[in-house]
Design a protein around this nucleic acid. Sequence first.
DNA 1: ACTATAACCGACAGCTAGTCGGTTGCGATA
DNA 2: TATCGCAACCGACTAGCTGTCGGTTATAGT
Lengths: 210, 210
Amino acid sequence: MRVVKEAEERRNEILDVAEELFGTKGFDNTSTNDILEKVGIARGTLYYHFKSKEDILDGVIERITGQLMAAASQVVSQEEVPILERLTKAILALDVDTSIGHEIMNQVHKPQNALMHQKMQEQLLSGITPIITRLLEEGIEQGIFHTDYPMEAVEMILLYANTVFDELLEQSPERKERRMEAFVCNVERLLGAEPGILRKAIMEIFEKQA
Amino acid sequence: MRVVKEAEERRNEILDVAEELFGTKGFDNTSTNDILEKVGIARGTLYYHFKSKEDILDGVIERITGQLMAAASQVVSQEEVPILERLTKAILALDVDTSIGHEIMNQVHKPQNALMHQKMQEQLLSGITPIITRLLEEGIEQGIFHTDYPMEAVEMILLYANTVFDELLEQSPERKERRMEAFVCNVERLLGAEPGILRKAIMEIFEKQA
DNA sequence: ACTATAACCGACAGCTAGTCGGTTGCGATA
DNA sequence: TATCGCAACCGACTAGCTGTCGGTTATAGT
């Protein structure tokens, strides 16, 4: 049976299926056949909407990073919220599984998904760094942070957060906590903030939620 | 014509060719046929020595990281050299193309080589972090560094160095210099060293070489 | 009702990684 | 020196993959 749909709708159907399969089986272990069968279309149709398998991956990643960046932007732009709180929330939005992260975030860190991980990291770094850097500069004006290299500090923080936090998942709770403490402390140092001030801000956020 | 060699010799021949091809064309774009033709062996022979294409990649990476780690260890163990100098040299040994790095280091950062990059990073991080952490702890005892989280700080530094420095290659000289300054400054902060002290140490090393 | 075209189809080509049963050189043993 | 066993080697073959292409059909606009 033949069903005709508008290009963008079909495109999104394909991306939905691809995102799920890439997220559960990984990019290399998902064949284009897996995708087109699950969508219920023929081979030619798939390649009518995407020029290659990698092009599909790019589409999936673009959708996700777009959503993540929008979320981060939204957090950062809330000028009535204290800077430290905005900073924390913006960083958390990237790692903790928000409603956006989906399954992908879990699988993205396995060696089989190296390409996905790298592309995602590239997009996120280049897209989110300027957003958070702006926030940081605001904090510098307010005298909360002190650094001559805000952008480079942000890069370092995001890169570390994006790479190491996932290996953390299968660690013991004590190690996890120590890692978090270390991370917070290192962030404070990089940003030139008063020691302990970020830790305090984070705890306040969690108390507020409880 | 049939030539018989000892297993380890053949294995190294294969690794030599694979390293060159992976380094110039990337892992995905190198077929097992490319390798076995260049070595001059049959298909079955290749799979007699390696159980899969990925197994070959692992072999290549293991050889390189092994050499890099040995070089770093050697630097760190020179107890008569000041700590700051050893630290600098140990980190530089990883990025600047030493005689070890070969061609691979240039290609390792392209998106097509994501798997290579990831495996290499994993090996390097897990292998070199403890080596440099030990050095850092020595510096803490001497009162040069101050941090409660030496290992995590080292992780952050190595990760950043390994990821960002290569993108740096195609930047303008001014940007490059600024990046280096920022990096040095951020390292000082993470290690809890006196501001400017690492920068001074680095300049002394370069002057000594000149 | 007609037509242009966007969306769709599926057979096919060309490549790939990995398997397997068979072969050969070589060192050990007697 | 004769022969025996095994490590090293061979290459045809399988199964599966991505991407192509000429042809087909639904639908929107006239």
